[in-house]
């Protein structure tokens, strides 16, 4: 941080952080049955709060651009990390739907998964 610049409005930022926390809590209670909307609101509020802390309390707003880019780079890696895990999540969801389908048609006693089961069915028919 360079010398001689005016201090950021720390108390106003503190007020904003406290108010946003209260809003988060109220949203979590009021919108408990609207999960998708709740998650969108909470993620937005959390990002705003985290941004306020980094920009003002950690003085990132007053650093050089090159420095900001360097220290924010891990955020990009974090997005890559979460995105890379999404195929696994999709596979888990696919798996649970798949199990539900075998249970619906469950007259066969439903032991093996359908990929294994499908080729054996014609063999039995012969």
């Amino acid at each position: 941080m360079t010398e001689g610049h005016k201090h950021p409005p720390y108390l106003a930022i503190f007020g904003a952080l406290a108010a946003l926390t209260a809003v988060e809590l109220a949203a979590a209670i009021a919108l408990a049955s609207h999960k998708a909307l709740l998650i969108m609101i909470l993620v937005t509020l959390a990002l705003v709060k985290a941004g306020l802390v980094a920009a003002y309390f950690m003085h990132l707003k007053f650093e050089r651009k090159t420095f900001i880019v360097i220290v924010c780079f891990p955020l990009l890696l974090a997005v890559v990390l979460i995105t890379a895990l999404f195929p696994d999540v999709g596979w888990m969801h696919g798996g649970s739907r798949h199990t539900a389908a075998t249970h619906e048609g469950g007259a066969t006693g439903g032991a093996p998964p359908a990929e294994g089961g499908a080729p054996t069915a014609p063999a039995e028919a012969k």
Partner: peptide, 20 residues
Amino acid sequence: LYWHFIDLVWIVIFTIIYLF
């Protein structure tokens, strides 16, 4: 910086673990 970072991380953890 270290102390504010702890605060920043808690904001994220509190939101995703306690409120979702």
